[in-house]
Lab assay of single mutants.
Amino acid sequence: KVKIAGPGLGSGVRARVLQSFTVDSSKAGLAPLEVRVLGPRGLVEPVNVVDNGDGTHTVTYTPSQEGPYMVSVKYADEEIPRSPFKVKVL
């Protein structure tokens, strides 16, 4: 029921550039959304989540370095389908 889309989860994500993606939970009811961005060697990146007021949230983060990242998206305390997402930061 929760959908996710945006360039911040795709290929070609650049280090030190603001990345974003949208989480659409409009068909999933009200529940807490939790997003974690883990970088190389367990680095935890700050994440900004904005409630758009229409059942969607815009998530932004800036990867601080190149390497493999994991983006975990939980809704109602459960990983959404395909989460955690593997993101290769260049």
Score class of each variant (00 low, 15 high):
39 G>N: 11
53 G>P: 09
76 A>H: 14
25 S>F: 08
69 Y>Q: 03
75 Y>Q: 03
17 V>N: 06
10 G>M: 11
8 G>K: 03
88 K>A: 15
53 G>M: 10
11 S>Q: 15
87 V>T: 04
88 K>Y: 15
68 P>L: 15
67 G>Q: 01
48 N>G: 12
79 E>D: 10
36 R>C: 13
40 P>D: 05
7 P>H: 07
8 G>M: 03
47 V>E: 03
58 T>L: 13
24 D>L: 03
43 L>K: 14
70 M>R: 12
17 V>Y: 06
19 Q>W: 02
22 T>S: 07
67 G>F: 00
63 P>Y: 09
48 N>I: 11
62 T>E: 05
80 I>F: 03
86 K>W: 09
90 L>C: 15
49 V>G: 02
38 L>N: 14
3 K>Y: 11
78 E>R: 09
52 N>P: 01
82 R>K: 15
84 P>T: 03
84 P>K: 01
59 V>C: 13
19 Q>V: 02
25 S>P: 04
64 S>Y: 08
44 V>P: 11
31 A>I: 04
51 D>R: 10
72 S>D: 05
23 V>I: 11
5 A>V: 15
41 R>W: 09
40 P>F: 03
42 G>T: 05
79 E>L: 05
28 A>K: 03
30 L>A: 13
81 P>A: 08
9 L>Q: 02
14 R>L: 10
19 Q>L: 00
6 G>R: 03
86 K>Y: 14
3 K>H: 12
64 S>M: 12
38 L>H: 14
39 G>L: 01
22 T>A: 05
51 D>H: 12
53 G>Y: 12
66 E>M: 08
65 Q>P: 00
20 S>Y: 14
34 E>F: 10
33 L>G: 01
1 K>V: 05
27 K>A: 14
90 L>S: 09
50 V>A: 10
49 V>T: 12
44 V>L: 11
24 D>H: 04
62 T>C: 07
3 K>I: 15
49 V>D: 05
20 S>W: 13
41 R>D: 15
24 D>F: 05
76 A>I: 02
47 V>C: 13
49 V>H: 07
15 A>E: 09
17 V>L: 08
62 T>W: 07
88 K>W: 08
38 L>S: 13
9 L>A: 03
39 G>D: 13
86 K>Q: 15
55 G>C: 09
10 G>T: 09
37 V>K: 02
83 S>R: 01
42 G>C: 06
44 V>A: 14
9 L>R: 01
26 S>A: 07
13 V>M: 05
77 D>T: 07
74 K>T: 06
37 V>C: 14
3 K>E: 09
69 Y>W: 04
41 R>M: 14
83 S>N: 03
67 G>K: 00
77 D>L: 06
58 T>Y: 13
8 G>L: 04
38 L>E: 13
43 L>D: 11
83 S>I: 02
15 A>I: 06
50 V>K: 13
68 P>R: 14
79 E>S: 07
57 H>K: 09
4 I>L: 06
68 P>W: 15
16 R>I: 00
44 V>T: 15
30 L>G: 13
1 K>M: 15
17 V>G: 04
37 V>N: 00
56 T>S: 09
29 G>E: 13
57 H>L: 05
85 F>L: 09
90 L>A: 15
46 P>Q: 10
15 A>Y: 07
58 T>N: 07
25 S>A: 12
77 D>C: 08
43 L>F: 10
7 P>C: 08
86 K>R: 15
57 H>F: 11
13 V>H: 03
